[in-house]
Design a protein around this nucleic acid. Structure first.
Lengths: 243, 243
DNA sequence: TCGCCAATCTGGTATATACCAGATTGTAAA
DNA sequence: TTTACAATCTGGTATATACCAGATTGGCGA
């Protein structure tokens, strides 16, 4: 049992000690923490209590878990501006991280109803669906689901999609969005997404939906992103559009 | 013990049953769930396991807890656009909810360093600091910390601040922001904020920082918001500002 | 009728223990 | 040297139990 003079619950005092080692830099980004059984011995607590402290730190974003491998120190958040279409990779590299995109699938599918409604096209229309996974410093950080109207970019799927999509859309198809609707909120990751990111189903994430439209209000691209909640900060700059 | 034929862990199957009652509407918004001991008896599991299911549902945003009172069904998320300065109350009421703002404190303080740096004023300058709590359907949903430069709005603290702040700034002081920088990310709520919202310290929240500037890039208002993570959706519309 | 306090209800924290399953590793066989 | 597999390490899930402290409630007394 730890020093018992204070009122603060044991698991929070353990949390504090661990948090200290992280913020002070004794434990570096991506470094593995001692095993749960080891921690419980060190602090003379049960594994259950140790876990409570770890789950707390996870919720705070200070550590993350990798299925049955252990707990690791969360690296610094990157900044991310979903309203800008500069390439993800160069955007991340500007911040001193490495980045990589992987295309998981690219198919022609019947448009999901909500995409049809949000995008102003008829239900049942065929659209391109692209699924990508993006890495920051070789850590998978988000899954991205993209919908495009083939009318605007015929033959798109023939291209390699591991590069900046908007660069391609601009240079090959002369597409340029005039307006974007963003929707952002915390949400748990469902099974397929969690699996693709190598985390536990039900762990919390950040959901971003982006609808890009052209000058006529017609939809160019619809984009759903499922982020690890601790991987980034949304940073948006909005110039005035008085009410 | 529940039906043991499936591989899905017990606590997730309990989760599913409870989630069902919520999404199907059998349990309505703000309705209290059965007590943990009651649930563990109903499902023939221990209280620890029942708790695991509840914590899971909490992470998903389907239920929330009120300290030692019980678990309740989370009401629907409201939409929230931090880039618009229309009154919070009318904005929420448009969506069919009731809203209310409470001023917790209004003082003249020495500017925090990060505010000085972000706002482009000298460190140590005195600024107004306003602390407000906002309710949706009588549920406290966010704590707001506002910084203003007294130079721009002398005597502001004499006014009632339970109304739309920007309405006041516009009509009384002719202030109008030209640009806003937003920063949004999930973060756990620290002790004072969690307490003010009546939730447990360490529960997850959504953090929003807004820096409003005038035409000259000078800061008009800086605003930090700490939201319950399940109370809202950020919805922003951005018109084009090509890269 | 109103206010206060005790009993009770509810979640919060903690111990001790057990077995399972995926990930990693070390060693022996090919 | 490389491959394959068994031992081991690590987190994941689950039981049983206990005591604490804040919140609610019900009843008694003024």
């Amino acid at each position: 049992m730890m020093n018992t003079m204070e009122k603060r619950p044991v698991y929070l005092r353990v949390r504090d000690e661990l948090a200290d080692k992280i913020v002070s830099g004794i434990w570096q980004a991506n470094e593995k923490l001692p095993a749960e059984r080891q921690l419980s011995e060190q602090f003379s607590i049960t594994r259950v209590t140790a876990r409570q402290a770890l789950v707390q730190l996870e919720a705070e974003g200070l550590i993350f878990r990798s299925n049955r491998r252990g707990w690791f120190v969360t690296p610094q958040r990157i900044n991310y501006d979903p309203s800008r279409d500069i390439g993800f990779v160069s955007y991340v590299e500007e911040q001193g991280f490495s980045a990589r995109t992987e295309t998981l699938s690219k198919t022609l599918v019947e448009v999901p109803d909500w995409v049809a409604d949000a995008g102003g096209i008829a239900r049942g229309t065929p659209v391109y669906e692209i699924l990508r996974r993006r890495y920051i410093n070789e850590r998978p950080c988000l899954i991205e689901k993209i919908y495009l109207n083939p009318k605007n970019c015929p033959g798109l799927l023939q291209h390699s999609l591991n590069q900046s999509l908007w660069h391609l859309l601009r240079t090959e198809y002369q597409l340029d969005p005039a307006e974007r609707d963003l929707e952002i909120y915390p949400q748990t990751l469902d099974a397929p997404v969690a699996e693709a990111l190598g985390v536990n189903t039900g762990s919390t994430g950040l959901y971003i939906r982006r609808v890009c439209r052209d000058q006529n209000g017609e939809f160019l691209e619809i984009d759903e992103e499922f982020w690890l909640h601790n991987a980034m900060k949304v940073v948006v700059q909005v110039s005035s559009k008085s009410l």
